[in-house]
Simulated scan of single mutants.
Amino acid sequence: MQANHPLDRPALSALTTRQAHLALADGPAIRFDPAYALFAAVRDDPADWSALARLARATGPVALFEADAPEPPGFEQIDHIPCLQMTCDALTPARRTVDFVDLTDADGPEMLALATLTRPGPFLERTHQLGRFVGVRREGRLVAMAGERLNMDGHGEVSGVCTHPDWRGQGLAGGLMRIVTAGILQRGDSAFLHARAAHVETIAFYETLGFRPRMRIDYRVLAAAG
């Protein structure tokens, strides 16, 4: 793993490049507008946790997303998920395709409802505006989707992948992931994603698409104490 690679601290890389317009800051502490995502980071080394605590008190809980993310002083941990970061520079050949639609802001409530039901990962009121999302509709209902979340110079994240329980086993998630990943690669970026480290079958599935493990990464949700 290359030292100081943008993907070592993906939230910081996104907040200081392509998604800087969505950033809220307090000195060296920086976070996404909480309507979009909980991700936050501290730009200083050593980290100024007091600045992040002030930002969290003003705007709500934050999530650290980086290798060996610490449990900083002045916070209460709400959640901790060990994850595996995976990258893709070329998709494997597809066995089949899916009919899809590009989702728009008008689809936001349905997207949030599907994500709330299936829990693919943190998905908030405006998460669907972080990048391109595509979906599959059946009988007028949104039954599967995938899209982009963190976006930085040279890299785009595949995220929000989910399928309604009634429509699983039809290859919808994999097909939609291919569409999103292909779009990232076509613009000259590499694609990456994050999987729960404990979900061995999910990781193996991502490998069939062309993703390869890069590093372990911690997701910690924190609330400012006091």
Results as ranks from 00 to 15, higher is better:
Gly121Asp: 04
Leu124Gln: 04
Gln170Trp: 08
Arg214Leu: 15
Gly174Ala: 02
Phe211Cys: 04
Arg214Lys: 11
Ala144Asp: 09
Gly174Asp: 02
His155Gly: 04
Thr127His: 00
Val180Ile: 15
Arg137Val: 01
Val158Cys: 08
Ile179Met: 00
Leu209Trp: 13
Leu142Gly: 05
Met177Leu: 08
Gly156Asn: 08
Asp153Cys: 04
Ser190Leu: 14
Phe133Gln: 04
Pro122Lys: 01
Gly135Gln: 07
Met145Arg: 03
Met177Phe: 08
Cys162Arg: 00
Arg138Lys: 12
Glu139Lys: 01
Pro122Phe: 12
Gln186Val: 05
Leu193Thr: 11
Gly154Ala: 10
His199Ile: 09
Gly147Lys: 08
Gly188Ser: 07
Phe205Ile: 14
Ile203His: 05
Val158Gln: 02
Gly121His: 09
Asp189His: 13
Gly140Thr: 10
Thr202Ile: 15
Arg138Asp: 10
Gln170Gly: 06
Gly210Thr: 11
Ala191Cys: 09
Met215Leu: 13
Thr163Gly: 05
Val180His: 00
His128Cys: 07
Met177Pro: 02
Val180Asn: 00
Glu207Ala: 13
Met177Arg: 03
Asp189Leu: 12
Pro165Lys: 12
Met215Ser: 11
Val158Ile: 15
Ala198Ile: 15
Ala224Gly: 11
Val221Arg: 14
Ile203Pro: 04
Val158Phe: 02
Arg196Ser: 08
Arg214Ala: 13
Ala173Glu: 02
Gly160His: 01
Gly135His: 09
Gly171Cys: 06
Asp166Ile: 02
Ile184His: 02
Pro165Leu: 09
Gly174Ser: 05
Val136Glu: 05
Arg126Ala: 08
Arg214Ser: 10
Gly160Cys: 03
Ala195His: 08
Tyr206Ser: 04
Ile179Cys: 01
Ala197Met: 12
Ala225Leu: 14
Arg214Tyr: 09
Leu209Arg: 03
Ile203Asp: 01
Val161Thr: 05
Gly171Ile: 07
Leu176Tyr: 07
Gly171Asn: 09
